[in-house]
Design a protein around this nucleic acid. Structure first.
Lengths: 157, 157
DNA sequence: GGGTATTCTATTATTCCTCTAGGGACGGGG
DNA sequence: CCCCGTCCCTAGAGGAATAATAGAATACCC
């Protein structure tokens, strides 16, 4: 789970798309102008979003992009993961063997923290953003950070 | 609030420092070797941490770095913000005038989401990481994302 | 069928971030 | 005073993020 401008641009564009999704496909040129994001960059981002089945495209005049499913079924993580591939911050390639063959304590810490942020963002969907309110209830249940759960805590790709 | 390897390395190093902080200053060379982070990179990170009063330094032989305050008073956000200066994901320099003089809807959305992540990470402190468990209780209370609160929702520097 | 709007793909340039390299400043011990 | 361990600073290489450009493919409309 990386959190950079790239993911933010993608979410911004997706919010724009979701707010006008009801009236047919939305063109990237329109999103580019409204959100002030360069068209060619948007093309790159939406290429990834399409490959990850977050959006669908319609070519030709009158074409553009649509959400691949209802906005309430698209979470922020879906978007961010689609454009911003997960990042390994460890120095042993997530092998957990950087410290004398044992996983460093920090590995487990990061995996746990990572998972919590992940779950939090998974709990916010596009529709909520469009409605102008983030998630308030906490069904992204707090996760007790168990050590040595190993790789199960890693972020899904 | 950016979330990159840089911040993670800093937190990793700080956990290392906190676990051995009781016995005098800790050298960067030691952290470098234990955590497999390049020494000169650590020097940069700790330079920023020092300027943000997260750590204190002692020069000369026997010197090193200490926590500037108890580990329970240092939150993850303190560390991340110190090394990873906040980033403006808007295209109008957070002026809120990119869309016909009015703030884009996405600005408020981002500020709100930003604030929630911020608060979540602010609720986890170093001591908890050292003890091997993240925060379970949710006193990083969920924040209703109010639109048009404007700049008050921005991440403090 | 030709014209045009649009997605799609590729190549390249530019700017920014990450990380490395090397030298300088300070301070304690002989 | 000299030596060495440590923090401290700056510059730059390398790579990733962002942007520009060019063109190909597709599909609507006349």
């Amino acid at each position: 789970m990386r959190l950079t401008t790239k993911g933010r641009f993608a979410v911004t564009a997706m919010v724009d798309l979701a707010t006008r999704g009801g009236r047919g496909p939305v063109t990237l040129a329109g999103i580019s102008e409204r959100q002030k994001i360069s068209l060619s960059y948007l093309e790159q981002l939406f290429g990834k979003l399409r490959k990850n089945n977050v959006v669908a495209s319609v070519r030709g005049p009158g074409g553009g992009y649509c959400l691949a499913r209802p906005a309430s079924k698209i979470s922020i993580v879906d978007i961010i993961i689609a454009v911003d591939e997960p990042l390994d911050a460890t120095n042993c390639g997530a092998q957990g063997n950087c410290c004398d063959g044992k996983p460093c304590l920090t590995h487990d810490l990061w995996f746990g923290l990572n998972e919590k942020i992940h779950e939090y963002l998974a709990g916010v969907n596009l529709q909520q953003l469009v409605d102008g309110q983030a998630k308030n209830n906490s069904d992204a249940a707090p996760v007790t950070m168990t050590k040595s759960t190993g790789k199960s805590a890693h972020v899904p790709a």
